[in-house]
C-alpha cells in the first residue's frame, strides 16, 4: 500500500514535469521577436504581417485607407447584390437602418438619422462597410467593392456624382452635410443640487 502510494506520487511528478516542458516549448515561438514588456517580461512584438491583418481602422483624415477605387455607377450593382435586402432598393425602405434622406429633419419632432442627414465623416462609412457589412457576411467585399458601395450610398444622398471616383485621396475630402452637427458633452446640463 505504502509502495503503491509513493509510485503514484512519482507518476504525478513526472506528469507535472512533462506538462511544464510542453508549456515552455509551446511558449517559445511566441517569445521570439521580443521586445517583451520591461517590468513583467510578457508579450512580444507583433510582426508586420500580423499588424496589417488587424490594423483596419480608417481615420477621418484618410489614414488607414488602402489603395483602390470605386464609383456610384459601379456601386449600384454591389448595392443591389449585397445591401438592398436589408436597406431597401433606394436606401430609404429598410427594414434595417435607413441610409438615405432625412436632410433638415434633425431638429423636427421626427428626426431621421441617415448617412446623408447625420453621419459627420465619409471615412466612417467606408470603415464600417469593411468592418461589419454585409451583416451576415462581414469581411467578404473586395476593397474596390467597398469603395463602390461607399460611393453609391453617398450618391443616393446627393453628396457625390454618379461618376466621381472615390479613392484614398478623394474620400477624406468629401464634406458630409452634418459635419459640424456634433457638440461636446455638457452634462450635468440641469440644476443638480437639491435639498434633501
Amino acid at each position: 500500500m505504502a509502495i503503491a502510494r509513493s509510485g503514484f506520487t512519482i507518476c504525478v511528478a513526472i506528469a507535472a514535469l512533462v506538462l511544464a516542458c510542453r508549456a515552455t516549448l509551446s511558449a517559445s515561438p511566441e517569445r521570439s521577436g521580443s521586445p517583451q514588456s520591461p517590468t513583467f517580461g510578457v508579450g512580444r512584438a507583433p510582426t508586420a504581417a500580423e499588424l496589417r491583418a488587424i490594423d483596419i481602422d480608417v481615420a477621418p483624415d484618410g489614414r488607414g485607407l488602402p489603395s483602390g477605387r470605386g464609383t456610384a455607377a459601379a456601386g449600384k450593382d454591389v448595392y443591389a447584390r449585397r445591401c438592398e435586402t436589408c436597406h431597401g432598393p433606394t436606401g430609404r425602405e429598410g427594414p434595417q437602418d435607413v441610409l438615405v434622406g432625412g436632410l433638415g429633419s434633425l431638429s423636427t419632432p421626427n428626426p431621421q438619422k441617415t448617412v446623408g442627414s447625420y453621419w459627420p465623416y465619409a471615412t466612417t462609412l467606408w470603415d464600417y462597410i469593411r468592418r461589419a457589412m454585409p451583416f451576415d457576411h462581414p469581411g467578404t467585399l473586395t476593397t474596390d467593392e467597398i469603395y463602390a458601395a461607399t460611393a453609391y450610398v453617398l450618391f443616393m444622398n446627393g453628396i457625390v456624382g454618379e461618376h466621381d471616383e472615390v479613392n484614398q485621396q478623394t474620400l477624406p475630402l468629401v464634406t458630409m452635410p452634418n459635419r459640424s452637427g456634433f457638440v461636446a458633452d455638457p452634462r450635468p446640463d440641469i440644476p443638480v443640487k437639491r435639498k434633501p
Binding site: 481602422d57 480608417v58 481615420a59 477621418p60 434633425l106 431638429s107 428626426p111 438619422k113 448617412v115 447625420y118 453621419w119 459627420p120 465623416y121 471615412t123 466612417t124 462609412l125 470603415d127 464600417y128 468592418r131 461589419a132 452637427g181 456634433f182 457638440v183 461636446a184 458633452d185 455638457p186 452634462r187
Partner: peptide, 23 residues
C-alpha cells in the same frame, strides 16, 4: 477614430438638431 458607433449611434440628439458626442 470617429467610428460608426461614436458618430451615427450613441450620440444624443438635441431639439436644435445638434448631437452630443462622447457622452
Amino acid at each position: 477614430a470617429m467610428t460608426r458607433e461614436e458618430t451615427s449611434k450613441y450620440t444624443d440628439l438635441m431639439p436644435d438638431g445638434t448631437a452630443r458626442q462622447f457622452t
